[in-house]
Deep mutational scan, measured.
Amino acid sequence: LDITFHVDGKNIHVHGASEEVVRIIEELIKNNARAEEIKETLERLLR
């Protein structure tokens, strides 16, 4: 699975993920999660 995301100002662009995963990533970023935390969360979800 190949998910890429980047933050452009306040806009979060996520590619290669389901809508549910996109929402989770957006929440994590809004809550100022570190990249490592986001990665760990995604790995748990995608197991």
Rank of each mutant, 00 (worst) to 15 (best):
L42P: 00
R23D: 04
E43H: 09
N11K: 13
N31F: 05
K30P: 00
K39I: 15
G16N: 14
E20R: 07
F5P: 01
E27W: 13
S18R: 04
K10T: 14
L45A: 03
T4I: 14
A17S: 05
K39D: 06
K30C: 07
L46N: 04
E27R: 11
H15Y: 14
T4E: 08
E20K: 08
E26C: 06
V7E: 02
E27F: 12
V21P: 00
R34Y: 06
R23G: 06
I25T: 01
V22I: 14
T41M: 12
E27D: 14
L46V: 05
V7H: 06
A33P: 04
I12R: 01
L1G: 09
L28R: 01
E19P: 13
G9P: 02
K10F: 15
D8E: 11
E20V: 09
K10R: 09
K30E: 08
R44V: 10
V14L: 09
R34I: 07
V7I: 13
H13L: 07
T4V: 12
D2A: 10
I24M: 06
L1S: 11
E37I: 14
L46R: 02
V14Q: 02
R23M: 10
E40Y: 08
I12N: 02
H13W: 07
D8S: 06
F5R: 00
E20T: 04
E26M: 15
H13P: 04
H13N: 08
N11C: 05
H13R: 10
G9L: 03
K30D: 04
D8G: 11
D8H: 08
G16Y: 05
V22L: 09
H15I: 13
H6D: 09
E37L: 13
S18L: 05
N32Q: 11
A17E: 02
E26A: 09
H15M: 13
E20A: 09
D8L: 03
V7P: 02
I12C: 02
D2I: 13
A33R: 08
V22F: 06
R34C: 07
H6M: 13
N32H: 12
H13Q: 09
L28N: 00
R44Q: 13
E27I: 11
E26G: 09
I3D: 01
R23N: 09
R44Y: 13
I24F: 07
K10D: 12
H15W: 14
E43Q: 10
N31Q: 12
K10A: 13
I25W: 02
E36S: 11
I29P: 00
D2E: 11
F5T: 01
L42M: 05
L46P: 00
K39M: 15
H15R: 09
L45P: 00
E36L: 05
E36C: 03
E20I: 05
L42N: 00
E36Q: 11
E40Q: 11
I29L: 09
D2Y: 10
E37W: 08
V14F: 06
L45T: 02
I25K: 00
A17W: 04
L28D: 00
D2H: 14
K39E: 15
V7T: 03
V7L: 08
V14I: 10
H6E: 10
E27S: 11
E40L: 12
G16I: 05
L1K: 12
G16A: 08
R47W: 15
G16D: 10
K30L: 11
F5Y: 06
E37V: 13
L28Y: 03
A33Q: 04
E43I: 08
R23Y: 08
T41I: 12
I24A: 10
R44T: 11
L42K: 00
A35W: 15
S18V: 04
N32Y: 07
I25E: 00
V14C: 03
I29R: 02
V14P: 01
I29H: 01
I25L: 07
E43L: 11
I3F: 12
N32E: 07
I24E: 06
G16K: 06
R23V: 05
V21C: 04
F5H: 02
G9H: 04
R34T: 15
F5G: 01
N32V: 04
E37Y: 12
F5A: 01
E19Q: 12
E26F: 14
E27H: 10
V14A: 09
H15D: 05
I25G: 00
S18P: 11
E19I: 13
E19S: 12
N11P: 14
V7D: 02
V7F: 11
E20L: 07
F5V: 06
L28P: 00
E37R: 07
A35R: 05
H13K: 08
L46K: 03
H13T: 12
R47L: 15
D8N: 09
E26I: 14
K10C: 11
I38S: 00
R44G: 06
E40A: 12
D2G: 10
E19N: 11
K10W: 15
E20S: 08
I3W: 15
A17I: 14
H13M: 11
R44K: 10
E43D: 12
R23E: 06
F5K: 02
E43R: 11
E37K: 08
L1T: 11
D8K: 04
V21K: 01
L45I: 09
R34M: 10
L46Y: 05
I12F: 14
I25V: 09
I25F: 03
R47A: 15
K30H: 10
G16E: 05
N11T: 14
R23H: 11
H6L: 13
V7W: 08
V22M: 06
I29T: 02
A17L: 10
V21Y: 03
L28V: 01
N31C: 06
R23W: 10
E36V: 06
E26Y: 15
V22Q: 06
L28I: 02
K39Y: 15
I24K: 08
G16W: 06
E26D: 10
L28H: 06
L46F: 09
I25D: 00
N32M: 07
L1M: 13
E26L: 15
I12M: 07
E37C: 05
G16F: 06
S18D: 08
K39W: 15
E19M: 14
I3A: 04
N11D: 15
E40N: 10
K39T: 14
H6F: 14
E27L: 11
E19A: 13
D2W: 12
E37N: 06
L45E: 03
A33G: 07
T4N: 08
E37D: 12
I38Y: 02
L28W: 02
L1C: 07
T41A: 14
L45G: 00
R23L: 09
G16L: 09
V22Y: 06
R23S: 11
L46M: 12
K10Q: 15
H6Y: 14
A33L: 06
R47Q: 15
N31E: 08
R23Q: 10
E27A: 14
I3H: 14
I3K: 08
V7A: 04
I29M: 06
K30N: 07
T4S: 10
N31L: 11
N32C: 08
L42Y: 03
D2S: 13
I24S: 02
H13I: 12
E19K: 12
E36H: 11
I29Q: 02
K30R: 13
G9Q: 03
L28S: 02
I12T: 02
V7Y: 09
R47I: 15
N32K: 11
T41H: 08
E36N: 08
D8T: 02
D8M: 04
F5M: 03
E43C: 06
F5I: 09
R47E: 15
N11M: 14
E20N: 07
N11E: 15
H6V: 15
S18W: 04
N11G: 07
E36F: 07
R47T: 15
N31A: 10
I38F: 03
V21N: 02
R34P: 13
V14N: 01
S18E: 04
F5D: 01
R44H: 12
H6I: 15
L45C: 00
N11R: 11
L42E: 00
I38T: 01
E43W: 07
E27P: 00
I12S: 01
L28K: 04
L1A: 09
L1D: 10
E43V: 10
N32R: 05
I25Q: 00
I25A: 01
D2L: 12
R23I: 06
K39L: 15
K39Q: 15
E20F: 04
R47G: 15
V14E: 01
K39C: 05
V7G: 02
E40K: 10
L42V: 07
V21G: 01
G9V: 01
E36R: 05
E20Y: 12
G9Y: 04
H15P: 05
N31P: 00
E40D: 12
I38Q: 00
A17K: 02
E40G: 09
K39S: 13
R34D: 13
D8A: 07
N32A: 06
V7N: 03
N11W: 14
T4C: 10
I38V: 14
A35D: 05
I12H: 04
E43G: 07
I24L: 09
R23F: 09
A35M: 14
F5S: 01
V21R: 00
L1H: 12
N32G: 15
E40S: 12
N11L: 14
L45F: 06
R44C: 06
H15S: 13
N31Y: 07
I3L: 11
K39N: 12
N31S: 11
I29A: 02
L1V: 14
I24P: 00
A35G: 09
N32P: 03
E43N: 10
T41N: 05
L28A: 04
A33F: 08
T4H: 08
T41Y: 07
V7S: 04
E36D: 14
D8P: 02
F5W: 12
E36K: 05
I29D: 00
L42I: 14
N32F: 08
V7M: 05
R47F: 15
L28G: 01
A17P: 05
A17R: 01
I24C: 02
L45Q: 01
V14S: 03
E19L: 13
L42H: 00
V7R: 01
L28M: 14
I25C: 03
N11I: 14
H15E: 09
I24H: 07
A33I: 09
R34K: 13
L45M: 06
L45N: 01
R47C: 10
E26W: 14
A33M: 08
L1F: 14
